Amino acid sequence: MTRRRPPSSASADDLLATLKRLTAQARQGVELQRARVDLAEALQRDMLPSGLPARPGLRTAARYAPARDGLDIGGDWFDGFVMHDGSLGFSIGDVQGHDVEAAAYMGQIRFGLRAVAIASTDPGVVLSRANDLLVSVARDLFATCTFVRFDAVDWLIESARAGHVPAVWATDDGRSGAAQDEGGLPLGVQPGEEYPVTRRRLTRAGAFVLLTDGVIEGPTVPLDAGLDRVIRLVGQGAAAGADADELAAEVMTAAEFTAHKDDAAVLVLRHDAAAPPTSNGRVG
């Protein structure tokens, strides 16, 4: 009877060559992913405004933090600009997805809102027209958004939201809460969507804070719990006299508390009280 020979094993040189090839492929994949993340971060940061408008009695500040794990880049943004009637327009939002396409789409929405605001200063109309524009482009992405108009004559904040998380308000006497205003669907979902507008006259000094869900929601922190935390932070800060920049920094600590995997953005409007009305019903 002949004895079978054991199967020959690969030589050490063959094993080393295979290991070297697999290592090179893995390194190439990591470098490609890193390049995509770097590109998305650059796109996102370059598309965010370098500054925000303000008015006497209104101070503004913002913060942005990329995704905590450093691998996924989303489409969060904030913006502020002077509208054609002299009022100020502010927007904050979050594009679905975490990649270069989401970051680029964010830029399109941000500038699209500015373009639409040339024809109308009504926040509901701005969101409705921007929504129809995005639907017409027929992309497989959508975005949540809040658009705010600050009227420096009547000292009003007018806001409308498209599927976005609530803003947070506070006054200098320590009161605070979530602006649970009626809203509409996210942008880019359904044509002809309408967005109700909520108007607030600023009779007391305080703050109006816009944020994205990355600030208040994380793997182990539900959205409601994160929102409650921000409400407390903003209320305490407003009562203590914190300025806009201090409030923005303090609110962003909530994102660290949630260990957020999404990116996060905060936009703070720190306002004085409205001036007493004059005899013609306008503020002085």
Rank of each mutant, 00 (worst) to 15 (best):
P56E: 14
D172S: 06
A24G: 08
G80R: 05
D122C: 07
A170T: 13
H260Y: 01
L127F: 05
L227Q: 15
R21H: 12
R201A: 14
A167C: 12
R129A: 12
L15F: 03
T146C: 06
G51N: 03
T121D: 08
M106A: 12
V126D: 06
A117D: 09
P191W: 15
G93M: 03
P276C: 02
R59V: 07
V148R: 05
A179M: 14
R110I: 04
H164F: 01
V209Y: 08
E250N: 11
P56K: 04
E250Y: 08
L58W: 03
G112P: 05
I73A: 03
V230Q: 10
Y105K: 04
G226P: 07
L210E: 06
Q180H: 13
I231D: 04
V125K: 04
G284R: 11
T60Q: 00
A255M: 03
L22S: 13
G188L: 10
L233E: 13
T278A: 14
I73Y: 00
G163S: 08
A26Q: 14
E101A: 15
A103F: 03
S91R: 00
R63D: 02
L133W: 13
A24C: 05
R36A: 13
D99Q: 06
F111C: 13
R63A: 11
A115E: 12
R232F: 05
A249N: 11
M47Y: 10
L210F: 06
